[in-house]
Amino acid sequence: MIIAERKPFREIQDMVAPYGNVLIAGCGTCVAVCLAGGEKEVGLLAAQLKLARNLAGQTGRLGEITVERQCDREFIEPLREVATDYEAVISTACGAGVQFLAALLQDKPVFPALNTTFIGVNEAAGHYTERCRSCHQCYLGITGGICPVTMCTKGLLNGPCGGPIGGKCEVDPARDCAWCQIYERLESQGRLQQIEAILPLHPHSRTTSPGTVIHPAYLRRYAAHE
């Protein structure tokens, strides 16, 4: 899932300082799981802003609403109506959700409350680590389920650099060397010969942003002009 962290409170406070009535729109999917922007976090941010505004003697209404996903038009469509009562909107979604909402509410300022960090996993409650750089070319099948693009600090595709010491990365000795782990994993599964395959240059050209994916079943609908 997408992992995000909440911005410092002061940054959020400054962004919405000129506005009276502000709607805080949460997202109930990835950022809710990583405790950054779900219904609970919307409540906490609203409570904090309310306290700060009371302290500063500011007035204005703070609305709270959380939709299932802000990256889906059908879920954010109702916000168009809700937002009419507010001068500005704070979105606690990832960058994708904030942009989708800002596009929907063309004439209204939409501010991000989070810094989107990476695609990762839930190690334990409150502990998230990166696993995928969404690089458009997955090597996990031949690297024993360990991603060299993400997990190797240098993103090397054909074995380790000369730096690992005792299975640890030379960039940060606290990290495991991804390629040492790949070696061990493949060895334990009896498919070490796979490591000998030379991977071609990584297709960085595919990662030109912004990316677009059209499902083959929908080519007629969306790509007919191509």
Partner: peptide
């Protein structure tokens, strides 16, 4: 931390 952020 949260209440310190708002100035309490």
């Amino acid at each position: 931390k949260l209440i310190a952020e708002v100035g309490l």
